[in-house]
Each structure stands twice: as structure tokens, then as C-alpha cells.
Design a protein around this nucleic acid. Structure first.
Length: 879
DNA sequence: ATCTGTGGCTGTCTGA
DNA sequence: TCAGACAGCCAC
């Protein structure tokens, strides 16, 4: 049975199935049940009482389990958690809530899967699978005079709706012809008719969860339309894109914005709808999206422009999908995990639930009822220990580390006869799917975890131990979690083998590849779900033992490598980088680990099945580190494929001729760093990757950049910073210890300025700003108000130079990267604004030390001029 | 109907 | 001047 959708409608569970082109509706009763262990029902009277109770619909014996089906969810909740009693405290007058224990609780009978909702129960019990959805994309334009928050509450009229099918062969576009409820009803009804006409069951909108779906639901309600949103799967393309893009290998670019236009531009190179001159003249500085009412009201060509804009945005979505294939992958993942292909199904907790409950049922296993937090009860989150990250060798920074001080770094550099921080011929190995492998190898599962096993000393027969946490597991029965992972890994192989046999590029081959990928994605998310307190499978001890067994393995591996004379430079979680070793020797070491070391040490901790596998992954001809999680490397080869050279100076990257260097963590690839800073660091990294070791080459770069910062007209794109709001602006405000208002971060202050102007900036929106003055705390303005007013000292000292300085400090630690570069704001001007012409802006900071400082002096005049222009612009702007 | 995890760097602000 | 809290983003 291939199910398109399922939902509870009062007393019914509605199942929508596809038969050919038709949707067939089935009705059944929603089941509110839980399981108990039959042996816990020894009290015959109690068992009889349950069986004959009017609120019990059925009591079914299923092997060692008894399934008790209740008449409704309310009764089931009382039986699980007890009856809720509300009373007033006679002293304080406050309302108190407590629970009278249920008969199951008083008897100490454990319940299982009592929180499972009827849709999930039905999918689990029937084994029904998910039909491949038929997609349509849509976008709404609503009354732009109503702010975002009110629009979501349904106070904004829908003006126009655009929609299209996957292949764009069928389109829908309707706009209201008059400002009336009846017109709005007409276009909404027409939209739903069109959905049925094209047979769509999955409706996709960009930021649909945050806007379109909510607005549609509220308007349907307010207008009294007889349309049922529950019959369709509503999927937010933006949320899906963000999730899938994190897993994607080539997700390096474009982190500035999750706006549809920004993503479309990055993925497709398609730009925004141009603002026609008539519009720009009539509504200066306004975007088309913010003018929906005005354009509609103006009528004629303006109204047509609105609908065109509406359709254009809609069409971007299927095009993004054709490029990425993320929705198709999610559809497959939904089928694998038996979740509906909508926004809720994107949650890893839901995916794991769907997969595990079914597998557990097949294996006659059930999970304890999940206890949900009571309302208003905020529990503190108590983190568990995670992975090991090794301090990289050759760090040239001034920071003192416990395990690698600058002195040690220097001594090591001398010993290694290194002239700079650039390391050559570095080999990298990593564990294949480390966490899933650990879970299988230690047979880690909630039900195999042993409660009273000894933490130290000999390991009892039939058990294994996590050496760093002491948590032990039964190895005589396969755990349900390892079983799930083994199934997924096996299925992944089945589908990738099948894909390899099919003619490349065919739809069948692509679908087989997607299935293979879907199993991988799901398997990799399980560890995280086990570590999440919100999940049914949460087990702190299991999650921590997973990470700590990883720590144990990688540390042991590194120690063995060092004992064999390799210089281990770095390692993070599941990888290690080594030099002073040939490729042949390194490969031999990897084989020895797999063939001898791991079998040996795992057997000693009691593991009976070894899935741990180290793999030789790649080599760098040249690599350099500045800190943990920050490095850049030039490939020698990757998984056996020889690398091409990195692009030379001034050369444009060409896939056929060049290999991209691997760059991790640097500001260069962060979305919250200014373009100027990123560009300078990128140039320095690329020069390093070309093997250039003359410091003068880098001094030249710095000199050019400093000249630019000091003297050029600086366009907004180069100097703005953009950061997201992780919460609503008012939630950032706190009191200091003294009770005063604590300052909020600069981007939040800017967001508040924008909000005061009437813009709606909810959680997740990005704020772009420019720093105008940093002499006494950061003063920033919204990017849209930028007209050249900028603190150029701050720009250089705090934004542009530091990322590159750290890089050069690490690459050439013997060089002076401070004098004349790190501080350019003259001392006497700190804490006050300097007016141009009053005194030298460089003061005595530019002591004539070295070539570079002399260059700085030449800049002085130009700098003064630039500052004058900048301040004049500011004065003009402030009016 | 909101919810995969921890480790780590770098920035701002506070308060000594 | 400097440590500590907090925030954002990134590596795994």
C-alpha cells in the first residue's frame, strides 16, 4: 500500500492512497494504545478489570507483550501519567497542579510506546510505505501594509497566488480583481482546484513554515472556506535546503543569506526581478516584495508586474531542485523512514522514530513511553563529553596552550628543520562512519546497556565495556539500535551496487543513488538523536560512550603512529594528519591498524563484532594550520586521484586544469565576515598554496589592502557585516549584575533600529550593518543607510587585518606582522574622534621600522583625504 | 507541534 | 588590561 497522506480527523483516521492517478480515501479508527509486559499483569483481578473497563477497546496479547487499546487519547494520558488535579494553594492563592497516580503507576507497571500518535502507530503496525509525492511549488503575495507578525496571524489579505508543477508544464497565476473577501475566496478556491487538477499532494514554498502555510491556513479559516489543509503535505523548501546542504560535500559557498533570491543566485546564477524605472521613481528605495499592495492598487502594468514577480519567485524553486535534487532525496528518505514527506518529516527525531518503531515491532521489541516535560518546567541542559581535537603542531600564534606552548612549537620547528609553518607531504587517514561503527561494534542500545556492570577490573563474559566511561553492554543479544544501523548500511550497499549496474544517468540509476544516500543520511543522524533529550531514544550514557569510544580509538591510533616515528600534526574526531612517512608506509600502518590493532584492543574490551575501519583518504603536498579546526591544504591526491595544481596568480579557476585547495574554518569561508577581510585572506591563502615563501609577496598584498582601506571609496558590499538573529530581538536583553540594562550585540542594536522603522525581523533573519565608529564601543548603522560613513581604523584593525595576520603569523612566525600593521589608529586619538587636518592621523604609530612602515608614511596624505571624504559624507548624511 | 550531538575560534561587552 | 559570559558560525 502506497500512502500519500494520513491524519486524524476527530473520531477517524483518514488514509489517502494513490491508485493510478486517483486518490482513494480510507477511514479507520485511530488507535491510542500502549504496551505492557504481560508478566507485569500477574494480578488477575487487575487484568480482568482492565479488560472489562468501558474505556478499554481491546487488550491483545502479542508474545511477551500485551497491547492495551484505549477509547481516546485523554484516557490513555491519564493511565500513563496519572490524573491531573488542579487546586488552589490556601496560603499563596496560586494554582497548583499535581497528578494522582494511575493504577499502572501505583503497581509499578512500566508502559511502552504510550506517547505514539495514531498516524505513527498505523504506519508501524501496517508496514505501509510512502508514495512518491507529486510536487507543486507556490508563492503568495499578501498585503504589504500589514507587518509580518500580523500577516502570520491572518490579518493580511492574499493578493495573488502563483504555482507551478515540477516540470513547469502547468502553471497557476491568479490575482484578486477587487479588494474583497469574495475575490480572495475565489483565488484561494481556484488554487485548491488547480492542485487537484494537476494531482499534486506535496506543496512546496520557500519559508512556507514561517509564512505561506500559516497565512493560507489563517485566511482559509477567516474567510470560512471549506478547504482542508491536512489533506496535503506542506514542505518548506528553505528548511529542507538548509538541512540537506549541511550534508552536501560542495556546500562551501554562499552563507550570507537564506533568502530565495540569494540561494537562486548562488545555485543558478539567476538574479532578482529588475526593479523597473517607473517603480523606482514612484517608490524610491523599495523592493518589489515590499510593494505588493501598492503595485496591486496602482493597477495596470504595475499589477501585472506584481504577478510576474510572484511567478518568477515560484519558478526559482523547481529550478533549484533540478540543480540540487534535495527534495527528491528527502522523498526517498521519507519512504525509508516511513514519515510523510512534509516539513515535520524533516526532523531527524521523527525519521528515527519511523524507522525504529517498525523495526522494533518486527523484532518484537517496544520502547518505554516517552515522558514529556510538564508545561513551564524548564530543565537545564547538561552536556555530555564529545570528541577529541588535537592541538595542531606549528601554530605560530601567541596563545598559550596546555599541551603545545609557543616554546614547544619553536623547539619542534627547530628539530624538524622547518623554516616556516608550511608542512609538506602530509598524509591523512580517517575512520569510516565512526559513530555508527562504534554503536555496532559495542552493540550499544538502550536495552543492551547493563545497569550494574563494574566500571573497572575484569570485564564479565558476554559483555563489553566502553573504556573511558565504564558503560557496559550485553554482547550476547543484538541490540535494536545496532540492528537498525546494520540494516541501513546493508541497504545502502544494496542500492549503491544496483546503481553501479544500471546505465549511468538514467532515472533508475539516479533513484538508486538517492536511496543509497538516504540510508547514509539516516544512519548518520542516529547518534545525534540518541544524544537529544527530546528524543524517545535519548540516553546520555550511550551517547557519551559513543563519543568517548571515538576518543579512545583516535588517541590510541595517534599514539601507535607516533611510536612508529611518524609526526602526527593534527586530528579531529575521526581523522589524523601525519608527516615524516611515505605513502607506502602510511598505507601499511592503516592496514596494520585494521588487521591487528583494532581486532586486538576491541577484543580486550569485550567487543565481539568489529566494524571499526580506518581508511587512507588523502595527502597534501603542502598544508598549514593556524589553530584547531583552521587549516588550508593543497592536495597531492584525494582517494587515489592525483590532484591538479592550484590556480596560479591571476588565473581563473578551471575544473579541467586545477584542483581547489582544501580550506577549513578560516574567516574566508564565513558568512559573518566582511568581503574585504575575506578577499585579503583568500589572496594570502592562495599565495601560500602556490608555495610562495617570500614574505615580501605577502607584504605587497597587505600594502595594497591597507591602501585600499585607507583611501578608496568603499562600496557597501565590501564593508558590511551580516549576522543572523538567533532569537527575537527582545529576548537578547538582560540585566547586568548591578541591575542595569546589559548591552546587546551590535547586530541586535541595528536590528532594533530597523524594527523601529517598521521592519519585521523575526528569529533567523539576517541583519547587515556597517561600523561607523569604534572609538567608544561599537556604533553601527543598518547597511541600507550606508553612504560612505565608516570607521576606517576599525575596518583595518579589527575586521580586515586580523584574520590574515593570524595566517601569516602561523606561516612565517619569525617575521614581524605587528609593527605598522596591527595598530594604525594613533594613540592620542583613542577614545576621541579626530578631525582631519587637526593632527597626523598616524601620530607616532608609524615608527620608521622596516620597509612597510615607510610605505605607510606615503599613505598618510591619501589617508587624511579619505578620512575627510568619509567624515564629510557622514556629516552630509546626518544632515 | 519546536527540537540530532559536542568542540572550537573569534568577536563584543562587562567589571574588576 | 584582562578574564569570563555570551553570540555566531563553522568542523566534525
Amino acid at each position: 500500500m502506497e500512502v500519500v497522506n494520513a491524519f486524524v480527523d476527530g473520531p477517524d483516521l483518514i488514509i489517502l492512497e494513490r491508485e493510478g492517478d486517483r486518490i482513494v480515501e480510507h477511514k479507520t479508527r485511530p488507535e491510542y494504545s500502549f504496551f505492557v509486559e504481560t508478566e507485569q499483569l500477574q494480578d488477575v483481578d487487575f487484568a480482568r478489570q482492565i479488560r472489562s473497563a468501558s474505556v478499554v477497546r481491546a487488550m491483545v496479547s502479542e508474545g511477551r507483550w500485551t497491547r492495551i487499546v484505549w477509547s481516546d487519547d485523554f484516557v490513555r494520558k491519564e493511565m500513563l501519567y496519572g490524573r491531573l488535579i488542579r487546586s488552589k494553594n490556601p496560603v499563596t492563592g496560586e494554582e497548583e497542579r499535581r497528578r494522582n497516580p494511575s493504577p499502572f503507576q501505583t503497581r509499578g507497571i512500566t508502559t511502552y510506546e504510550g506517547d505514539v500518535d495514531p498516524v505513527r502507530r498505523w504506519f508501524t503496525d501496517t508496514g505501509a510505505t510512502i508514495a512518491k509525492p507529486r510536487r507543486a511549488y507556490f508563492d503568495l503575495e499578501t498585503d504589504s501594509r500589514v507587518n509580518f507578525a500580523h500577516a502570520k496571524m491572518g490579518r493580511s489579505r492574499i493578493i495573488s497566488i502563483a504555482a507551478c508543477t515540477e516540470d513547469e508544464s502547468k502553471k497557476f497565476l491568479q490575482v484578486i480583481n477587487a479588494w474583497s473577501d469574495s475575490e480572495e475566496r475565489r483565488i484561494i478556491s481556484a488554487f485548491f482546484d488547480w492542485i487537484d487538477e494537476v494531482g499534486a499532494d506535496q506543496l512546496i514554498a520557500w519559508n512556507g513554515d514561517g509564512f505561506d502555510f500559516l497565512v493560507l491556513r489563517e485566511r482559509i479559516e477567516r474567510l470560512g472556506l471549506n478547504l482542508d489543509m491536512r489533506r496535503k503535505n506542506w514542505l518548506d523548501h528553505m528548511v529542507l535546503f538548509r538541512r540537506m546542504n549541511m550534508n552536501s560535500s560542495d556546500s562551501g559557498e554562499e552563507k550570507q543569506s537564506m533568502a530565495l533570491n540569494a540561494i537562486a543566485f548562488a545555485q543558478l546564477g539567476e538574479g532578482k526581478e529588475e526593479i523597473p524605472p517607473e517603480v523606482a521613481k514612484r517608490w524610491p528605495g523599495r523592493s518589489l516584495g515590499s510593494l505588493s499592495y501598492e503595485l496591486w492598487e496602482a493597477g495596470g502594468e504595475f499589477r501585472e508586474l506584481l504577478t510576474r514577480y510572484n511567478m518568477k519567485d515560484t519558478l526559482l524553486m523547481p529550478r533549484i531542485e533540478r540543480k540540487t535534487g534535495y527534495i527528491a532525496l528527502f522523498d526517498t528518505l521519507a519512504d525509508v523512514c516511513r514519515v510523510l514527506p512534509n516539513s515535520v518529516g524533516l526532523q531527524p527525531t521523527k525519521q528515527m522514530d519511523g524507522f525504529m518503531l517498525r523495526l522494533a515491532l518486527e523484532r518484537k521489541h517496544h520502547f518505554a513511553t516517552k515522558v514529556f516535560r510538564e508545561k513551564g518546567e524548564e530543565e537545564e541542559r547538561d552536556q555530555f563529553a564529545g570528541a577529541f581535537v588535537m592541538q595542531p603542531r606549528t601554530v605560530g600564534s601567541k596563545k598559550k596552550e596546555d599541551d603545545w606552548t609557543p616554546d614547544q612549537a619553536e623547539a619542534w620547528r627547530l628539530k624538524m628543520k622547518l623554516e616556516n609553518g608550511i608542512l609538506r607531504d602530509v598524509h591523512v587517514a580517517d575512520f569510516a562512519s565512526l559513530y555508527p561503527s562504534i554503536i555496532i561494534t559495542w552493540n550499544m542500545s538502550p536495552e543492551t546497556k547493563l545497569q550494574n556492570a563494574a566500571v573497572n577490573g575484569p570485564i564479565a563474559p558476554g559483555t563489553c565495556r566502553s573504556p573511558l566511561t565504564g558503560v557496559c553492554f550485553d554482547v550476547t543479544v543484538e541490540g535494536i539500535l545496532p540492528a537498525a544501523l546494520k540494516t541501513m548500511i546493508a541497504m545502502r550497499k544494496v542500492w549503491s551496487d544496483r546503481a553501479a549496474k544500471l546505465p549511468p544517468g538514467t532515472p533508475e540509476a539516479k533513484e538508486a543513488q538517492r536511496r543509497s544516500m538516504a540510508y547514509k543520511v539516516a544512519a548518520n543522524s542516529f547518534y545525534g538523536v540518541v544524544g537529544s533529550p527530546f528524543s524517545r531514544y535519548f540516553d546520555r550514557e550511550v551517547a557519551e560512550s559513543v563519543t568517548q569510544n571515538g576518543v579512545w580509538l583516535i588517541k590510541r591510533t595517534i599514539a601507535e603512529a607516533e611510536e612508529r616515528g611518524m609526526e602526527v600534526l593534527y586530528g579531529d574526531t575521526d581523522s589524523f594528519f601525519a608527516m615524516n612517512v611515505t605513502q607506502t608506509e602510511y598505507e601499511a600502518f592503516v592496514s596494520w591498524c585494521n588487521d591487528t590493532l583494532y581486532p586486538d584492543i576491541l577484543q580486550k574490551v569485550g567487543c565481539t563484532e568489529n566494524r571499526i575501519k580506518l581508511a587512507y583518504e588523502k595527502a597534501f603536498s603542502l598544508v598549514m594550520f593556524t589553530a584547531k579546526k583552521r587549516y588550508a591544504g593543497c592536495f597531492l591526491h584525494y582517494k587515489g586521484t592525483a590532484a591538479k595544481p592550484v590556480p596560479g596568480e591571476g588565473e581563473v579557476f578551471d575544473k579541467k586544469l586545477h584542483s581547489r585547495p582544501e580550506i577549513k574554518g578560516f574567516e574566508y569561508k564565513r558568512g559573518d565576515v566582511s568581503v574585504l577581510a575575506r578577499r585579503l585572506q583568500e589572496k594570502a591563502i592562495m599565495t601560500l598554496m602556490r608555495g610562495v615563501v617570500r614574505p615580501e609577496a605577502y607584504r605587497q598584498l597587505l600594502s595594497e589592502a591597507l591602501t585600499h582601506v585607507a583611501t578608496a571609496e568603499l562600496p557597501l558590499e565590501e564593508v558590511q557585516i551580516s549576522k543572523s538573529l538567533s532569537q527575537e530581538t527582545k529576548k537578547y536583553h538582560r540585566k547586568t549584575a548591578k541591575g542595569a540594562d546589559q548591552a546587546v550585540p551590535p547586530h541586535v542594536r541595528v536590528a532594533e533600529v530597523l524594527e523601529a522603522k517598521g521592519l519585521e525581523l523575526g528569529e533567523g533573519s539576517r541583519v547587515s550593518y556597517v561600523v561607523t565608529d569604534s572609538s567608544d564601543g561599537i556604533k553601527a548603522i543598518p547597511a541600507q543607510d550606508y553612504k560612505g560613513q565608516i570607521d576606517r581604523y576599525y575596518l583595518w584593525e579589527s575586521m580586515v587585518y586580523p584574520p590574515t595576520q593570524r595566517l601569516l603569523q602561523a606561516a612565517f612566525p619569525a617575521q614581524d606582522w605587528v609593527t605598522g600593521l596591527e595598530r594604525i589608529r594613533p594613540k592620542q586619538t583613542r577614545g576621541k574622534r579626530v578631525l582631519p587636518g587637526q593632527e597626523s592621523l598616524f601620530g607616532d604609530a608609524a615608527d620608521p621600522i622596516g620597509e612597510h612602515a615607510r610605505k605607510l608614511r606615503h599613505l598618510e596624505t591619501a589617508w587624511v583625504n579619505a578620512m575627510t571624504r568619509s567624515l564629510e559624507a557622514e556629516v552630509a548624511w546626518r544632515g
